[in-house]
Design a binder for these strands. Structure first.
Lengths: 234, 234
DNA sequence: TATATACGGAACTTGCCAGTTTCGGATACC
DNA sequence: GGTATCCGAAACTGGCAAGTTCCGTATATA
């Protein structure tokens, strides 16, 4: 049951020393990799690392178990790869909303697609929680695919607010950037309650904005400042 | 699967009123229950639910595996019982510090013994994270032994600050009470960094107090207002 | 002291799952 | 078309852990 933590040469076999081999026969269909990794993410989100079996992943991806082992040497490395592949999806710290106010930016991040993506990432994280402490590779994958992208987005939004003079320059950006990630994770994984738009607005208006010295709008909280309807997406 | 979450001797000394069978022979030594449950908590904190084996618990408690199964019908119910037994230890919402200021109260909660206790509870929670969503009994045990006591303590401290007019009456106590629990859990379990006095002070002064409209003390943050030396305990 | 029960330890049974092998069929290169 | 390789399916192996049974011993009641 221990995680295989070998750092592997992934698929690159022994290099033919002299002649380019110019392989023969059917080629490995690497487009299936994504299907398998997606299936693994699904299963991880539902039953966690120890509940996941290679048969489940193979079945979900309509693949054979042997195909999985042809591509990854062990369950542990498949999972690390699957988590790492989540990095490219979702948040993009280079294309953030810029509404002119911190609250506007934070609220603009709340889109159905983004909320759903964050929800899945949190569930995957929860399913891997008890393994994190014993697998540095997995911890690193989770950090760089889930934790850091989200923290980085927040740091940029707060830094912009500092740069435009909206909030104090000496506020603890590093700590405040973790407020929403921490609270949503706790809410979803520990108390098992939904992380929806209302809850995110409550964090923004009840904790984050007051913490940086801003007053949330007075009226019905969160009702306004929703520039897009519920069906609007990216 | 019947739920047996009794934390004390179920077959108490109450004698059957009429036909008391007056059992014969050696009696079950219920003082061992606590040893076994403590061993289970230790193992859970170290390797999580799926990593924990009944042999490990028995070995740690210097008991036989059969003794465990004489007292609990399954691993799952032993774990639920072990978590439920954590409820009585640590926080006591009826004997909270009362320093006259919210910050004083929050800082007074930071004692080596309390930090250590919270740390262990968080690790246990992390080890059970992926099981919570599929075991309502376990979710309930965690909630009432770990989540609620901590939230209740915070709610009381904030409510007292409201009552004495120190902070606004309309602040979102329910949400703010979850800030520190959420952030410490994330810090310890996800980012794997220590939850020590400095980090707790950073949360108090960098997030919680500003969020309720209070200014933390200006100077070296957290250095003062530590009325007791590092060796002082409860 | 006699008896009924609990105890720790160890052997045992059972089932599951990681990982391997085998096989008939599909597919891309030559 | 020939062939080497990949594919999915299924059978198989081996180890590990949940749960059970048995045994020699300890201990509380009568």
């Amino acid at each position: 049951m221990p995680l295989e933590t070998t750092t592997t040469a992934p698929d690159a076999a022994v290099p033919a020393p002299d002649a380019a081999p110019a392989r023969l026969g059917r080629r490995r269909d690497h487009s299936r990799d994504a299907d398998i990794l997606d299936a693994a993410i699904e299963v991880l989100a539902e039953v966690g690392y120890d509940g996941m079996t290679m048969e489940m992943v193979a079945g979900r991806a309509k693949a054979g178990k042997a195909t999985l082992y042809r591509r990854w040497p062990s369950k542990g490395e498949l999972v690390v790869d699957a988590v790492a592949c989540m990095k490219s999806k979702g948040l993009d710290a280079d294309h953030l909303p810029d509404t002119g106010t911190l609250r506007g930016d934070l609220v603009a991040m709340i889109k159905p697609r983004a909320v759903e993506d964050a929800d899945r990432k949190l569930r995957v994280m929860g399913g891997l929680m008890s393994v994190i402490s014993r697998s540095p590779e997995l911890a690193e994958a989770i950090s760089s695919a889930i934790v850091e992208p989200r923290a980085e987005v927040n740091r940029r939004l707060f830094q912009r607010a500092i740069d435009r003079g909206e909030i104090a320059a000496d506020c603890d950006v590093a700590t405040i950037s973790m407020v929403a990630p921490s609270m949503t994770a706790y809410r979803l994984l520990v108390t098992q309650r939904p992380v929806d738009r209302d809850y995110l607005i409550a964090i923004i208006d009840g904790v984050v904005l007051p913490a940086v010295g801003l007053k949330p709008p007075a009226g019905d909280p969160g009702a306004q400042a929703a520039p897009l309807g519920p069906l609007a997406d990216d």
